[in-house]
């Protein structure tokens, strides 16, 4: 649903966000702004703060974090206090998790219909009385991710990639204006990863939905996202076009491991380093080959 854009209202605005776990700084004065309709990759080594940042955007990371977060012009948190009407923000933001977070014993259909919960009156949601239109919308969303034929199967019977697509269908039913995907392909095989990324890119292109996706595999960022934000030890160390990611920067991001792996070879390209960096993170190097 293309909305008339007020130019001064970013989809995401993070100001001076800090978060520490004990002595470790998970986020260190992070400032990020994302405009409506952008598709942004969030990259960085394990523990660089990608997940923490994404979870803070919808108030899923708890209190005690100085700084402010605004989504779609609404306050998510200010001075460490999560806003009291956080549910209205969440209603407009689809969140896709690494482990899919579907309810395994419920049918795929019901999992997807959960996307309507913020709009449906309580008596209907608690009794499971969804209207024909809502069911149709859920089925359409499932068709868009290619799962309509599995609508009435239990979610737990689906493969990882299928579950992740169902989770994306849920954000479609939610009519999310922003989709945040926290390592959506980190547990998937190469082919499933490609499909998930392509679906996200298509939703971004067709619906002008803002998409922020955190990734381990740099080459996926380069291929699908025009812009990349890179985190290292909780600080933004790069924010710009994905094509501008240099080998030096990647080496800086992934530390000595990428450097070691690179070894004495000369004449490498970004894709190469990305692949190696992905491996260095202990993640499927195969995914980078896809």
């Amino acid at each position: 649903m293309p909305t008339p854009k007020a130019p001064a209202k970013p989809a995401i605005r993070v100001k001076q966000l800090q978060r520490s776990f004990g002595a470790r700084k998970a986020l260190d004065h992070v400032n990020v702004e994302v405009q409506p309709g952008e598709m942004v990759a969030l990259i960085g080594a394990s523990g660089s703060g990608k997940s923490t940042l994404l979870r803070h955007l919808v108030g899923l990371a708890g209190d005690k974090a100085p700084g402010s977060v605004e989504m779609l012009g609404r306050s998510v948190q200010a001075d460490g206090r999560v806003s009291s009407d956080i549910r209205r923000v969440r209603a407009d933001v689809g969140f896709v998790f690494q482990q899919f977070n579907l309810v395994g014993r419920l049918p795929v259909m019901t999992n997807v219909l959960a996307g309507t919960l913020s709009r449906v009156p309580l008596w209907r949601s608690l009794t499971g009385r969804f209207t024909v239109e809502e069911r149709q919308a859920a089925l359409d969303a499932l068709a868009r991710v290619g799962l309509h034929e599995m609508a009435w199967q239990r979610a737990s019977t689906l493969s990882g990639g299928q579950q992740q697509r169902a989770a994306i269908a849920r954000t479609l039913v939610q009519r999310a204006k922003v989709i945040l995907a926290d390592e959506p392909i980190a547990s998937l095989d190469p082919e499933s990863s490609r499909r998930v990324m392509e679906i996200l890119a298509r939703i971004n292109a067709e619906d002008r939905t803002t998409v922020v996706v955190s990734l381990h595999q740099v080459d996926f960022a380069v291929r699908y996202c025009p812009r990349t934000v890179a985190l290292r030890d909780g600080s933004v160390v790069y924010d710009g076009p994905s094509a501008g990611l240099t080998p030096q920067l990647l080496r800086h991001l992934y530390g000595a491991t990428a450097d070691e792996l690179h070894g004495a070879a000369d004449g490498f390209d970004v894709r190469d380093v990305a692949l190696r960096a992905g491996r260095a993170q202990g993640l499927s190097g195969a995914a980078a080959v896809a």
């Binding site: 899923l60 549910r87 209603a91 998790f97 977070n101 996307g115 913020s118 939610q174």
Partner: peptide, 10 residues
């Protein structure tokens, strides 16, 4: 899964 439901604004 509970977090997944929470994230929809439920």
């Amino acid at each position: 899964p509970v977090e997944g439901i929470r994230a929809t604004g439920a």
